[in-house]
Design a protein around this nucleic acid. Structure first.
Lengths: 208, 208
DNA sequence: ATTTAACTGTATCAAAAGGTACAAGTTGGA
DNA sequence: TCCAACTTGTACCTTTTGATACAGTTAAAT
């Protein structure tokens, strides 16, 4: 029950009717690390809201991947929000990267609520807006910046997020974040090291 | 007045209250070809809905551009929709590519309507969903496909849209659609011609 | 008809990206 | 301790992309 209150507070859901509806139809679930929440080309049946933990959302093509975003606590995956309004297949993958607690709401409810409850309306619009702006930014970045710049930007954003100059990640994972191959990442990182920008250790990159 | 009725019909706006509100606060405007509707980094003050004509929406960086989408009649630019809900600067440009009639609605109204009127709620959600899916598709395409494939895809989509195998466009404009340079486009097209995929004329490409 | 501006073709070079292949290092568990 | 799986470094080569430069073409305007 605590998780629901967390959700209500975070989304500013004051309507008691909505609170009741959510509790009635939602399903609280704690899933282990590395569990798929959404799989590319499969239908989405639930709107998932992350309460604790973290979910990675990406697109893939063959053995290449590119990160779309991470879903943090009290966020939802916009893609499942889309499905909420229009029955559709997912064009992304989503997987927990640590043990994660989610609240699952059947998609048919979530869309009617957006007209019925003001707080839900705000929540969905805000999610869409935030995510759209975010994706736009990623698109522009991908269109106009080379891999080295995008890699460095990624490292810097990680440093900012975690408040630590040491980023624990393998070259191949890094490649899957920025949408290239492991070899390319290794080469760029080696260049960065020679330029004194980073310090390389096993599965660990220190930004200087 | 005819334009408003067109709008109401297309968006299935049956609520008389909403019709009145729209007529009261909106502004009908016909703008010539090549007029900027939205400029990157400027604040958006209006939600623009295209009634007739066509608007091109793109991002740019230096002298490079990449197409985001075209806004066709009875569509809105999602970006201006974002601004509707959250006062923000535009991260895109939008310009008419033919004489275009738009209905402009001050952003502060558009967001309140989404909770007040069901048809408006549907309109905004649908716009977001459609645009998000579209951008996701473009992102994936950009991440995993080379210029030649993206160029060919663009030509094919144009053929489908216009129902004509002859696509009237210059190499430099094509470069601005797919996010590369004129020379690259010229080289790729020449390859296509040698492979018998296209027929090249001045400012005109025929898909075979 | 002539000028002008935009468009196209191409050659050359350089940089970026990626694929293959293999050696060597690191870790975690059997 | 030792093996298996994963990780990293790198050499070599190819393709893709992009930048520069210039010549020739086409269309539109005066």
């Amino acid at each position: 029950m605590d998780e629901y209150n967390q959700l209500f507070k975070a989304l500013n859901i004051l309507e008691e009717d909505l609170q009741e509806e959510i509790i009635k139809v939602a399903e609280l679930q704690t899933v282990p690390k590395n569990t798929f929440i959404v799989v590319q080309d499969k239908y989405i049946k639930w709107l998932a809201i992350v309460i604790s933990g973290k979910v990675r959302v990406w697109q893939e093509d063959g053995d290449r991947q590119i990160l779309l975003y991470y879903v943090n606590p009290i966020q939802t995956c916009v893609l499942s929000l889309s499905a909420t309004f229009k029955d559709c297949k997912s064009s992304v993958n989503a997987k927990t990267i640590e043990e994660t607690t989610i609240i699952k709401i059947p998609v048919r409810f979530a869309s009617t609520w957006s007209f019925k409850y003001f707080s839900w309306n705000k929540f969905t619009s805000n999610s869409f807006i935030f995510s759209y702006e975010d994706l736009l930014h990623s698109f522009k970045n991908l269109a106009f910046n080379k891999n080295d710049k995008r890699l460095l930007d990624y490292l810097k954003s990680q440093r900012k997020k975690t408040q630590s100059s040491i980023i624990p990640i393998s070259h191949s994972q890094l490649a899957k974040e920025i949408g290239t191959t492991r070899e390319v990442v290794s080469k760029i990182l080696k260049q960065f090291e020679l330029s004194g920008i980073v310090n390389l250790k096993f599965k660990q990159i220190e930004l200087l």
